[in-house]
């Protein structure tokens, strides 16, 4: 559908066409983004969407109360959720493996360590469409690794991590929309900086992760 770049009201027929496609989940991700911003201050559209929200919520409530004539269990949705949780767990294991691969056996005070408590966390948000600086949660002082988390659009697919001197690594997106990896602190200053790549509606999106190296070292 044609994208309108300003927030001037659409013709009624065109607005209705957008609404129908939105409710049918047939807009692309960028179109959804645009339309959701467009409708925010338009009560007549909000009412239509709230009716749709109510329908979904009401069906879920009925499904949760089988004694009241509820609907069948959500076997497929549940299975999907379980699968995604498992896939996310697998991703975390892969991230752990990546940390080991890059840093060698973990060692703290000369003893092998199996656990890194409270690593520093760096959280990138790619949802806003701008390269905003990441949120940095300090974690334990002197942690040998940092946990990097990247928020991704809901429709992001084929997420890969590109590190200097390494082959691309596939990342699995968590059920709540984040790709994560554990990075040895010593790798923070490597050039080029880590880059995350994913496809969205068939378009490849690349984002360089500007890790706040100096700031972290000083903390």
């Amino acid at each position: 559908m044609t994208r309108i770049v300003n927030n001037q009201p659409l013709a009624e027929w065109l607005e209705r066409a957008w609404l129908q496609r939105y409710l049918q989940r047939r807009l692309s991700a960028p179109e959804t983004e645009w339309f959701e911003a467009y409708l925010l201050d338009k009560p007549h559209l909000i009412a239509e969407i709230e009716a749709d929200n109510d329908l979904r919520d009401g069906l879920a409530l009925v499904a949760a109360s089988p004694s009241r004539g509820g609907v069948a269990p959500l076997s497929k949705a549940h299975a999907e959720l379980r699968w995604r949780s498992m896939a996310w767990a697998a991703s975390m294991v892969a991230a752990w493996g990546l940390g080991l691969m890059l840093a060698g056996p973990l060692s703290i005070g000369g003893q092998s360590a199996l656990v890194i408590a409270s690593p520093q966390r760096i959280v990138f948000d790619t949802l806003r469409g701008v390269d905003s600086p990441p949120l940095v949660h300090p974690g334990a002082a002197g942690s040998s690794h940092v946990l990097v988390e990247v928020g991704l659009p809901a429709d992001a697919e084929h997420v890969t991590l590109h590190l200097a001197g390494q082959a691309a690594l596939a990342l699995v997106v968590s059920p709540d929309g984040f790709a994560s990896f554990l990075l040895p602190r010593a790798k923070l200053g490597d050039k080029p900086a880590p880059r995350i790549e994913y496809s969205r509606a068939g378009v490849i999106v690349s984002r360089t992760l500007a890790l706040p190296n100096d700031r972290m070292r000083s903390e």
Partner: peptide, 17 residues
């Protein structure tokens, strides 16, 4: 409006995270 929308979507994502 776009900023408000992004903030809302991000807040939901962050909650489930």
């Amino acid at each position: 409006p776009g900023y408000v929308r992004s903030t809302a979507v991000f807040a939901v994502t962050a909650e489930y995270r």
